[in-house]
Deep mutational scan, measured.
Amino acid sequence: MQRVNMIMAESPGLITICLLGYLLSAECTVFLDHENANKILNRPKRYNSGKLEEFVQGNLERECMEEKCSFEEAREVFENTERTTEFWKQYVDGDQCESNPCLNGGSCKDDINSYECWCPFGFEGKNCELDVTCNIKNGRCEQFCKNSADNKVVCSCTEGYRLAENQKSCEPAVPFPCGRVSVSQTSKLTRAETVFPDVDYVNSTEAETILDNITQSTQSFNDFTRVVGGEDAKPGQFPWQVVLNGKVDAFCGGSIVNEKWIVTAAHCVETGVKITVVAGEHNIEETEHTEQKRNVIRIIPHHNYNAAINKYNHDIALLELDEPLVLNSYVTPICIADKEYTNIFLKFGSGYVSGWGRVFHKGRSALVLQYLRVPLVDRATCLRSTKFTIYNNMFCAGFHEGGRDSCQGDSGGPHVTEVEGTSFLTGIISWGEECAMKGKYGIYTKVSRYVNWIKEKTKLT
């Protein structure tokens, strides 16, 4: 034993070699072989497995989906700052455009905790909710729209109204504003409101030439003092309507412009014939205590009207009353817009006519005020429907199939267009061939041609 100890002390290297040989010859039971080890760690190889990531292109799944990435790591994937920024906006807080917040056709661009709407022409605001041009839906104005110097929408209202708090709607500024039905039992019968379409306001006024200088022999019209197929109006439903009495009662109609003036057809009036105007009328054979009678003290036909040349060209006249009318729910003026808007309103496509005229061709006159909704007829169809001249200051309205029309005794009465609950004068009943005849239409004086003249002559002093 002493000898062994001496050998170990003198030859430590020998001992180490012996131990190493023993270990190498022993069977290893701690580690699995290569094949079995792979069965336990069965993990798919990654895209760049075996390579240094710093030297390969980034992978979106590896960089940002398996674990949260930084902007720089995302930049490695896209290799483009702009594309990385677009991805980053949604990656950080989701897609803010998912709810489609942009209105009126706006395009949404996502941002971090926010979004941006790219608005089409005519709109602005956070969600493109603000109209900035009158060309689109009248700028959301209830009545009139004008573009300011910086191309912003400025709404306005006709006389007797003021802008509401929203700067879009119009509200009454006087007790009985024009064009409004205020009798409670008839307010439910107000005709369907007309909503502004998209309009090209630059070209809204037709490029028409008034044929002022045409000389033409007097034409022989049949029954051209021209509501057939209409309905009984309720008291106060058309408070701007008046009836004219002269040699015979209810020979023509008219509309209240203001307390002192009536507008009617020029062919209705004769110099030297006494005319009485009755406002607030409903049943011409009954006294309903809503009527107001006034005498006409002055007749002003349009300066281009000449019955000797043509009885229905420039067929418009103004009547001055001896005493002002007292405005109330049964006696209310009709609204008159400017030339541009009167023309736009007419193009809405349908209007209402009213009167006490004959209820059928050569038949009896109506006792109760009649009204009828009539569609506008395109000019080409209008011209083809008659052998008589249709001037540019006239328009056609009615039904091709016949059966409904204005008729004798309705002449001078109103053709009105309702705009968001307020009625505007767009025409004056003038003439036609018979009444409600198939293929024939009622012919009306186009008020847009005469609004400046009306307003100039009827100013209240």
Rank of each mutant, 00 (worst) to 15 (best):
T84P: 14
L319E: 00
V377C: 03
T133G: 12
N127W: 05
N104V: 00
E116G: 03
I428E: 00
V30N: 15
P239V: 02
N80M: 05
E165H: 12
R140I: 06
K109G: 03
P197R: 08
T133F: 06
A164F: 03
A337G: 05
V174L: 06
G125A: 01
L41Y: 12
N203H: 10
G254R: 01
G403D: 15
Q57C: 04
W261C: 01
E231L: 07
A233C: 05
R62N: 13
W356D: 02
V154C: 05
F388W: 10
P375I: 08
Y441K: 02
S350P: 11
L244K: 01
D378T: 05
D111R: 04
N313F: 08
C335M: 00
E73F: 05
H267T: 05
V228E: 11
K362C: 03
N127P: 00
V296F: 01
C97V: 00
D198W: 13
E418V: 10
P324H: 04
K45V: 12
S204P: 11
P333E: 02
E401Y: 08
S107Q: 11
K137Y: 06
R404H: 15
C396G: 01
Q57I: 11
K311N: 05
I454P: 00
C268D: 00
K457R: 15
N80V: 09
S365K: 13
C108N: 00
V416E: 02
N48G: 05
R358W: 06
I136F: 13
Y441M: 11
Q2G: 14
G409R: 11
I309K: 13
V202I: 13
H282Q: 10
Y201A: 13
P333Q: 03
N393T: 13
G179N: 02
D338P: 13
L321E: 00
S70Q: 14
A207V: 09
F360V: 09
S448L: 02
S423L: 09
S187H: 06
H289P: 12
H400W: 09
N213R: 10
D33C: 03
G412D: 02
F424I: 00
I443T: 06
R180L: 06
R379W: 08
I443E: 02
V353L: 05
E208D: 12
Q237G: 09
P172M: 06
T218A: 06
I344C: 04
L327C: 03
I309Y: 07
R83K: 07
N48L: 11
E434M: 12
R191I: 14
I390F: 12
V447L: 09
P333I: 00
G432L: 03
K459T: 15
V277Q: 01
G403Q: 13
H302Y: 14
D322K: 03
C178D: 01
E323D: 09
N452I: 04
Q408V: 07
E35V: 11
E159G: 07
I334H: 01
Y450S: 01
T209N: 15
N38W: 06
K311V: 07
D131Q: 09
E27K: 06
R298T: 10
I136R: 10
T85L: 08
A265K: 01
Q185A: 07
G432Y: 10
D33T: 10
E86F: 04
L189K: 12
S25P: 08
E434Q: 12
E285L: 15
F251Q: 08
E98A: 09
L19C: 08
E259G: 03
E208C: 07
I284E: 06
D223L: 12
K446Y: 01
T461M: 09
I7T: 11
A173S: 11
Q216P: 12
A266L: 02
T458D: 00
G106Y: 00
P172G: 07
M394T: 04
H34M: 10
T386I: 09
N304D: 11
A307T: 07
S11N: 10
K68T: 15
G349H: 09
K446F: 01
T225K: 14
S148Q: 12
I390C: 04
N59K: 10
T271I: 09
N245A: 07
K347S: 15
G403E: 14
T445P: 00
N104I: 00
K152D: 10
A26D: 02
E270M: 08
I214Y: 14
F395W: 01
N59F: 07
N310W: 04
P197Y: 12
K387T: 11
D131C: 06
D110N: 14
R140A: 15
S148I: 07
N151D: 09
F424L: 01
V263M: 03
F224R: 08
K247D: 13
K89L: 07
L372Q: 14
L20F: 11
M8E: 08
F348S: 14
F87Y: 15
T186G: 11
D410R: 13
F238C: 04
P177Y: 01
C128E: 01
C335P: 02
E270S: 05
F144V: 02
T16M: 15
R43P: 13
A173E: 09
G106N: 00
K274E: 13
N295A: 12
L321T: 02
R75M: 08
